[in-house]
Write a protein that binds this DNA or RNA. Sequence first.
DNA 1: TCATCAATGGGTCGTGCGACCCATAAAGGA
DNA 2: TCCTTTATGGGTCGCACGACCCATTGATGA
Lengths: 212, 212
Amino acid sequence: MNTPIRVVIADDHRLMLDGLKQGLTSLPDIDVVGTAVDGTSLGAVVAHAKPDVLLVDVEMPGMSGLSAISRLKDLPPTIVVTMHTAESYGKSAREAGAVAFLSKGLPLPDLAAAIRAVADGQYLFDQDLDEVLSGYRTPQLSSRAEAITERERDVLRCLVQGISGTEDIADELYISQKTVKNHLASIYEKLSVNDRAQAVVEAMKLGLDRKW
Amino acid sequence: MNTPIRVVIADDHRLMLDGLKQGLTSLPDIDVVGTAVDGTSLGAVVAHAKPDVLLVDVEMPGMSGLSAISRLKDLPPTIVVTMHTAESYGKSAREAGAVAFLSKGLPLPDLAAAIRAVADGQYLFDQDLDEVLSGYRTPQLSSRAEAITERERDVLRCLVQGISGTEDIADELYISQKTVKNHLASIYEKLSVNDRAQAVVEAMKLGLDRKW
DNA sequence: TCATCAATGGGTCGTGCGACCCATAAAGGA
DNA sequence: TCCTTTATGGGTCGCACGACCCATTGATGA
């Protein structure tokens, strides 16, 4: 199972910070491991959380996002975001050590893609963002989840929707009860669980309920 | 069960919009039923989604948030948010028909509290925000969920954590297997389900996994 | 004072569930 | 060509689960 990408977010607007944190954490392959509301505390947070990717707002009171990251040594791959669409900060962001420069006008899934991209070593300064991001749009599911076949997913979806009885699932999918049991047995093995309740928990943790 | 509060959000920054949407939707008592990225489309969205509460950013290109809402008739209780801490827009917001004016520096849980407050008929313009919000901090759980007792929640928490066997739960909580079964039976009745898998699903839908 | 409810516990009964054995048809890659 | 995987199905067995019945303690409130 690919370990999730560890991200630290810095933004002085708590609403933005909390929203991003929530939105990114809900993705199965991204973990928000720390946050900062100003430039001065950022160093300590990064040193402690050891993120794979750093996400910083340019506009911050006191120390700006750019001076904050240029002051860090051992800077992880860093994405700088701004409210302005203008590329005014683009050059300075690069000079400060950032590997990506994005607008806050971007949809959240694109930011997620950008995080995956920079975690993968990409640089994102140019205009053809879409081209680079397209390769990173789908959340990387863990290997265990990938092993779940189409039909097994159907069964799992029934469980997550509250259809838990063998007979109910069989009726829902137009197959025999025995086949349902066979699929469940495969699911249990692949998810390392041993009953329906645990399967539901694992399915939700892996994000299998959100991507279909 | 109290129906969730229906909210429409308008913000030109997609990152903020998507983040807020995600963060608010994850609350058990709030539903985001529509979004707009500019002032012009807001009217149509509100007319279609019929929200209980409207959340609007002041700073938006084209038509500002304020002129957008002042143009609406049948305006639902409206919260205006701004990036600036300054109360510069406060008066204009009131004049435009808003019932609350908040900074984006607010933590997300406070925004959620504010939404509950205005849905309840409160006005939020003054400085003693904390006092008003304090009464709305905890998400209003549905009546069914409220009926779940302390000990039953312990059992439910075990389930959500993947401890599903009767004996395992009994060991975890230092009680007999019989007591576990009794608690489970009560849970099933209160949640209108009939096995552990369905109980897990319901617990997560009601947000019982996030508030303890 | 008395009733109610939460939490703890007992027992019994039937069946649904999970673990194991197996087979067959179709599809797809080596 | 053959082997692997997927989806479909059969059977058996033992135990755990859920549905009922019940009691005792302590707290809380009418």
